[in-house]
Design a protein around this nucleic acid. Sequence first.
DNA 1: GGTTCCCTACTCGGATAGAGTCTGTCCGAGTGTGCCAGG
DNA 2: CCTGGCACACTCGGACAGACTCTATCCGAGTAGGGAACC
Lengths: 163, 163
Amino acid sequence: MRTSEGVEWGLHCCLTLVWVGGAEPVPSARLAAVFELSPTYLNKVLQRLTRAGLLSSTPGPRGGVRLAREPERITMMDVVAAVEGPDPLFACAEIRQHGAGAEGAAPREFARPCGVSTAMRRAELAWRRELSGRTVADLAAATPAASVARIRANYARLAGTSA
Amino acid sequence: MRTSEGVEWGLHCCLTLVWVGGAEPVPSARLAAVFELSPTYLNKVLQRLTRAGLLSSTPGPRGGVRLAREPERITMMDVVAAVEGPDPLFACAEIRQHGAGAEGAAPREFARPCGVSTAMRRAELAWRRELSGRTVADLAAATPAASVARIRANYARLAGTSA
DNA sequence: GGTTCCCTACTCGGATAGAGTCTGTCCGAGTGTGCCAGG
DNA sequence: CCTGGCACACTCGGACAGACTCTATCCGAGTAGGGAACC
């Protein structure tokens, strides 16, 4: 089990949009150039963020994507859920209800979820809570100012060459 | 991203071993019958648990697997790590170091891990901590006595027919 | 000169292949058991 | 009756296909801007 590569892409792109994106939309191709990523696949990732309502996209020349709301209101959990999908980490298949071990069991016995599922869900909840507690703005604030300045300068140069 | 099916299988098998497994090894085929699982693939899952030192296997007739140590000393994290492998949920590819955005950056700037990676790791740690804090014995203790009795009875019948 | 129309270039969006991993299967190596022959 | 050997059946262990998701790519729909023609 491994999280998609797209999660890292999405988070870094959101950060970049915090720094360089004002009201002007940023083309996904330019974001791909910033991180040297596959432009078309990054486009696909940004599509998911857009469908999730985290980004808003504008077509046409001078188009691109920009944050749909303030970075303080975009949590890491939002980004992860948008890219990875809404499925939980652990999908309980209820194997306890099948096979010879379950024969003769009262149906009401399975009304409550099994302990395995509950415990896995509890752990997953801790993960989600941690991700929900940190926003894109927090990540931006924790980045050294020198790095931010460099990224802004490099981006401006990139935008100047219209790449 | 989704955890392997084998995680659920491994956890339930460990629980079953707590209840029905004494010193006698339990064949993996019988565990598969208990839960109506693919016998050969369950075998593969139990292999991983064995290689991780959670189970001990004995070949030959009357062979099978049994818990390698007390259930109080087997955490859910152990089982998940054994089945899923040691890889972290989030693998940081350090995309911040590549592309036009990183040009002209001092190498020492990347000495510290980026905020994205740190935050993701922190969340993953919360997940792991939760899983490490709950043992197979805890899961067994939380199971209703009626269910345990039923499983034991069904298993005895299964063992009687030498299935 | 101002206005209207059209055309081009650029952007996103969804549909389409390839790679890697998870799931499921098969067969071989090794071992304990039970039987059979011999003493 | 006891002992030794042997053949068998049963178990795990690793090597081998199929399915699904993730990664990567391509092409089409739609839009803003700029230029040319016209009034």
